[in-house]
């Protein structure tokens, strides 16, 4: 298991796409928003938490098809499935690797990008916390989506169609935590719901993803 995680991380670092691409995408989306809505602080500040959440979510989505498709193409998925590792464990590790290479950099970068969008002072902590809690759910749900379309050529667009509706609850509660935090309101309820969604997906979705992968492998 640990070896698989280390291998996936090494691959992500060496292929260059892992850390860099999602992060650059996040940066560009954030930079584009003021061009579209205007540079006025009064306009940017209220939408900053939502924009940052959308940006992080899309950056996450962008890299999902790398989770399983590469291993599928070069045959390692077959070999992994015959190795003495449970498939549920394999997909969990894959999701974890995706989170470390994509989700974690986004979480770290989000406060810096908050400055660009004039995020109000108390918002930084809650933006950070909400992304830290929410991005694991995005990775796990995304891994399930990637497992669904792994056997398909050009499955990327279909995967977006399948995964984005599943992202709705995470986005709502995550952005709500960030927004309330920025406005200095009580964040407890959405924070608990967000944590619940993350832990729930983490506990249950690997089983669904592994079942889907078994169907696709046969």
């Amino acid at each position: 298991m640990r070896a698989l995680l280390l291998r996936d991380l090494a691959l992500a670092v060496r292929a260059g796409g892992g850390f860099g691409l999602g992060l650059s995408f996040f940066l560009i989306v954030t930079v584009l928003v003021p061009f579209a809505v205007g540079p006025d602080t009064g306009t940017l500040a209220p939408i900053a938490p939502g924009v940052l959440w959308i940006g992080a979510l899309l950056a996450c989505l962008l890299s999902l098809d790398r989770i399983l498709a590469l291993d599928w193409e070069d045959g390692s998925l077959d070999l992994l499935a015959t190795a003495p590792l449970p498939l549920e464990g394999i997909v969990t590790v894959k999701a974890l690797a995706h989170w470390i290479t994509t989700g974690l950099p986004l979480v770290a970068a989000a406060p810096a990008l908050g400055v660009l969008l004039s995020l109000p002072g108390p918002g930084y902590l809650w933006l950070f916390v909400s992304l830290l809690l929410g991005t694991p759910a995005l990775s796990v749900i995304g891994t399930f989506g990637a497992a669904l379309v792994v056997g398909l050529k050009r499955g990327g667009l279909l995967m977006s169609l399948l995964v984005l509706p599943l992202y709705v609850p995470t986005l709502i509660f995550g952005a709500e935590v960030a927004r309330r935090g920025a406005e200095g309101l009580d964040v407890q309820t959405p924070l608990l719901m967000l944590a619940g969604i993350s832990t729930g997906s983490l506990a249950l979705l690997p089983f669904a993803a592994a079942a889907v992968l078994r169907v696709n492998l046969r």
Binding site: R7, A10, L11, R14, A15, E73, D74, G75, S76, D78, L79
Partner: peptide, 11 residues
């Protein structure tokens, strides 16, 4: 061992 070797090009 199947038709594909399952090797990672960058390792």
């Amino acid at each position: 061992a199947g038709h594909a070797d399952g090797l990672k090009a960058s390792l």
